[in-house]
């Protein structure tokens, strides 16, 4: 059942983005940024946490999860260290995603040649 939920949530989120692509002139950069900000806003209202519990990986594979991770780690940082915590812990949870993207992109760009 959780597989179905994951499938449906990720599918619907992508379909909504496709509607944006089809009916507006927004580029991929616009839509991904929008989804990230939207993730942070949903996290602010506590909705994204519930989505993660209900839809599991369906919510965690989306780019909105990036905004959610940024917001929650900033808040946890504030609770631990005050204002300094917001600055020092904001990227804490999303570090895994950013570091993975940087390392793999860098290494693969040396192994493979660009194709056109």
């Amino acid at each position: 059942m959780e597989y179905l939920y994951a499938f449906l949530f990720a599918g619907v989120a992508c379909a909504l983005a496709q509607i944006l692509f089809n009916h507006t002139k927004l580029t991929a950069g616009h839509v991904t940024s929008l989804y990230t900000v939207l993730g942070a806003i949903l996290s602010f209202f506590g909705i994204y946490e519930k989505c993660l519990q209900k839809f599991g990986a369906g919510a965690s594979v989306l780019i909105s999860n990036f905004g959610h991770m940024l917001y929650t780690s900033a808040l946890e940082g504030y609770k631990a260290k005050g204002i300094l915590g917001i600055f020092s812990e904001l990227l804490c949870k999303s570090s895994a995603a950013i570091t993975a993207a940087i390392v793999f992109a860098f290494v693969f760009s040396f192994i493979f040649k660009p194709r056109d």
Partner: peptide, 14 residues
């Protein structure tokens, strides 16, 4: 988009 996005969510859950 729905099917591919859903498939990635499904793979993530797996």
């Amino acid at each position: 988009s729905f099917l591919v996005g859903g498939l990635i969510g499904f793979i993530g859950q797996v």
